[in-house]
Amino acid sequence: MTHLAHHDHAAHPAQRHRAGGGWRTAAQATLHCLTGCAVGEVLGMVLGTALGLHNGATVGLSVALAFVFGYALTMRGVLGAGLPVRQAVKVALAADTVSILVMELIDNSVIAAVPGAMDAGLGSALFWASLAGSLALAFLLTVPVNRWMIARGRGHAVVHAQHGH
């Protein structure tokens, strides 16, 4: 599914993005961000755990991959809409940086706070439950951040502005 198809653009006039940004728009933007973050986060945790990396290196790998996949997902959509690569990079950075940063701070703080979660193996329910719970909490706490940013024409609103809205 392309980024354009991912959002119901008809339900999001430009004025709404700039002047109010609704909770639905913010939730969709956060879900979009969560998708890229989750892929990177899970892959980083799996690789770090499987390779026997220490906790700091595993978290670092997870965060780096969350940013890579988060930006890549946005770039895929805006490139598909016809933006040149240079502009697509700028849009992805503007649209997703704060959202990914907030999500990663929450996600990794939760995982670090759950006793034994970072040391649990890939076959452990504790590992997967703490990872899933941390991503769910990160989503819930990032939605208001994205709503605030979209209402001010920032964050994910930048993506919509590039699509001629």
Score class of each variant (00 low, 15 high):
A157R: 10
M103T: 01
V110E: 04
L105R: 05
A112G: 01
A112N: 03
M103F: 15
A125W: 14
D96R: 13
M118C: 01
E104W: 04
S99P: 00
G133W: 04
V143W: 11
P144V: 07
L105N: 02
G116D: 09
S109K: 07
A136W: 05
A94V: 00
W148N: 03
V143D: 02
A95H: 12
F139S: 15
A92V: 09
P144W: 11
G121C: 06
S109A: 13
S130N: 13
F139D: 15
N146E: 13
P115C: 04
R147V: 13
W128P: 09
L93P: 03
S124P: 00
V159E: 06
A129C: 07
G116I: 07
L126P: 01
L137A: 13
L122Y: 10
S134M: 10
L122N: 12
V159Y: 09
G116V: 06
L105S: 05
I150A: 10
D119Q: 11
P144M: 12
M118A: 11
T142G: 03
L135K: 14
I106E: 07
T97E: 01
F127N: 12
G133H: 08
L93N: 08
L93A: 13
M118S: 07
G153C: 09
R154F: 02
M118V: 02
V98E: 00
L135F: 13
A157F: 01
M118N: 07
A117Y: 02
F139V: 08
M103I: 03
V143K: 13
L140Q: 10
S109T: 07
S134G: 09
I111K: 15
A95R: 07
N146G: 06
D119N: 08
H156I: 01
N146K: 09
E104I: 00
L126T: 07
R152E: 05
A151Q: 02
L126F: 14
F127W: 13
I106F: 03
V110F: 03
F139E: 12
L140I: 11
R152T: 03
L135Y: 11
V102R: 15
M118H: 12
M118K: 15
W148F: 05
A157I: 01
V98R: 15
L131P: 00
A157S: 05
S134L: 05
R152N: 05
V145F: 10
G155M: 08
S134Q: 09
A129G: 04
V102C: 13
V158W: 02
I100Y: 12
V159R: 13
L101F: 07
L126Q: 11
V145H: 06
M149L: 15
T142H: 02
V110C: 02
G121S: 06
A138C: 06
A125T: 15
L135R: 12
A125G: 13
W148M: 03
A129Y: 14
R152P: 00
I111M: 12
I106V: 10
A92E: 11
A112Y: 06
L93T: 08
H160T: 12
D96P: 00
M149N: 02
A136I: 15
S99C: 14
A92C: 06
L105Q: 01
T97N: 01
S99W: 04
I106Y: 04
V102F: 12
L93E: 09
V143H: 09
G153Y: 07
W128V: 14
R154K: 15
